[in-house]
Design a binder for these strands. Sequence first.
DNA 1: ATAGTTTTGTTGCAAATGCAACTTATTTTT
DNA 2: AAAAATAAGTTGCATTTGCAACAAAACTAT
Lengths: 211, 211
Amino acid sequence: MEINSIFEGIEEDDVNKMLKCFEARKMVYKKDRTIVTNIIGVKMIGIILSGTANIIRYDYNGNRSIIEKLEENSVFGEVFSRLGSDISVIATSDCEVLFIEYEHLIKRCKKNCPYHSALINNVLKLLSRKIVELNERLDVLSKRSIRDKLLSYFELLASTNPKRSFTLPFTYTDLADYLSVDRSAMMREIKNLKDDGFIKTNGRRITLISY
Amino acid sequence: MEINSIFEGIEEDDVNKMLKCFEARKMVYKKDRTIVTNIIGVKMIGIILSGTANIIRYDYNGNRSIIEKLEENSVFGEVFSRLGSDISVIATSDCEVLFIEYEHLIKRCKKNCPYHSALINNVLKLLSRKIVELNERLDVLSKRSIRDKLLSYFELLASTNPKRSFTLPFTYTDLADYLSVDRSAMMREIKNLKDDGFIKTNGRRITLISY
DNA sequence: ATAGTTTTGTTGCAAATGCAACTTATTTTT
DNA sequence: AAAAATAAGTTGCATTTGCAACAAAACTAT
């Protein structure tokens, strides 16, 4: 049921035809390179074909915010953010990105190619999944204390593992940015969580203790 | 360009045929009534046809979180949240809700009705808009201080008005929940913002002062 | 292997926030 | 119109958080 790719269920040959019909462009980026800055006005959507990236922004105090973590098959673009300026998409690993004009995707192409609806269905599911993820992040950020933010994020990561154990998907420094809290305050709270017997840690490997 | 309804561009007659084909159900709810609780397992999507509602949840400390504010044409459902239990959708005004089975929407119906793709396109746009809104909320919640949360939320509301003036869409009590901060601390900060000349207020009418 | 860079771990202190407990307005209901 | 309920506005105080400034550890690149 889970969709793996925007081209799921479409033959490779047909995919290539579609890409031509859509005037799609595939781009390759090295780790830490900027994929897009100032997305403003560009009515393209990007699809991460491989690798990972972050949508980030520095506020006027110089605090970095990771607006969103993009993974394989994540979709991004100005149509999805409105925020436009001072936002960048940065590759966090080598990655391939496919750019498609949004209008092309939304409207049926003149040739009315039969794969179009399959593609739209796939995008629908990717967007749904994105909404799920955004809601999850909101759920974490809506917690009032660092402790509750950590616990609810950890709970999320642990929920897929029966041993309630998981490896953080990024560094502690990045985790603080992801949770929008001060790093040292977060480290202090992680220490408290350990002292209070809520978690065990071994580097970035964390285990949630249940009662 | 903005889409106004999930049925935009489809004739009323055809809409009715589709609703039958989809086995859609329309329900009416009075203000403050529960539209859904424990969304878990129900593979329906709901579309707010008129009125407003909030997706809310009480955490284990009894703090209420407004997970999401739903307006006319907002889409909601378990497929969009995964969170399932302890979440409720509550009508904040009298409202009409249309329920459609998700699978019906995603898959082409047997009769392959021609309006189906128009509908999917509309849903695609509604979902995109929802992602924009979720990102906006994330942008607000990712601010580290109450002051910055307020300013960035106010900025959002003011951005559509050339006079940088707007009316809060809900009570200050609800605003505190929406921003996930303590109400009294928020009121204090609003006072500070006034004293420091950032804003003027008159009840729920707020004006942002520029330099 | 070593020098350079980034991450992790700590701490004291000031500032911001949450909490509790009220009073006063405003709105809603009877 | 009065009573009841909800919202707004305040304040003192304890706690949490952010900030700044380090040192130690773990990675990276030469």
